[in-house]
């Protein structure tokens, strides 16, 4: 993965994770989990807009908006699923506000590069890959529409 093509915030998140030992990576993921923004009020009663991420064992729903070439990512997952919330939060913080091209340029294997396989297991990291794949697909759909 070429670091120069990775959006600054995602690159920073990766550096933060990789600088920590395995146990502290879990704590950092928990911090991300606690930081997942609430849905904007206008979307709270619109479950129809959201797509379920089937790759995650816990229910997580995402919804992408594209306005004037800027991508906005909304995600919601229950408090009982902190790992899934953490994954969603990393992507929301890393992708929200980027251009369409920048989001589509994020490598599909970004989740595998965070050093989380040891801390949470490769199977769980797959859930984040599923989330990223769906974000990219939704962005392409919005642009084509």
């Amino acid at each position: 993965m070429d670091a120069t093509t990775l959006p600054a915030r995602l690159a920073e998140t990766r550096e933060d994770f990789l600088a920590l030992g395995v146990r502290d990576r879990l704590q950092l993921l928990l911090e991300f989990s606690n930081e997942l923004p609430e849905l904007p009020e206008r979307y709270r009663d619109h479950p129809d807009l959201f797509e379920k991420v089937e790759e995650c064992q816990s229910p997580v729903f995402i919804f992408v908006e594209v306005e004037h070439d800027r991508v906005h990512l909304h995600a919601t997952a229950p408090a009982e699923s902190p790992t899934t919330r953490g994954f969603a939060s990393i992507l929301v913080q890393g992708l929200d506000g980027l251009s369409v091209d920048d989001v589509l340029a994020v490598p599909a294997d970004y989740p595998q590069s965070l050093g989380l396989s040891e801390a949470v297991s490769p199977l769980r990291v797959r859930g984040m890959s599923g989330m990223l794949a769906r974000v990219r697909r939704q962005v392409r759909e919005r642009v084509a529409a």
Binding site: P82, T83, G86
Partner: peptide, 9 residues
């Protein structure tokens, strides 16, 4: 747990 972070919460 299924969720690896739930204990920590």
């Amino acid at each position: 747990d299924e969720d690896v972070l739930l204990y920590e919460t």
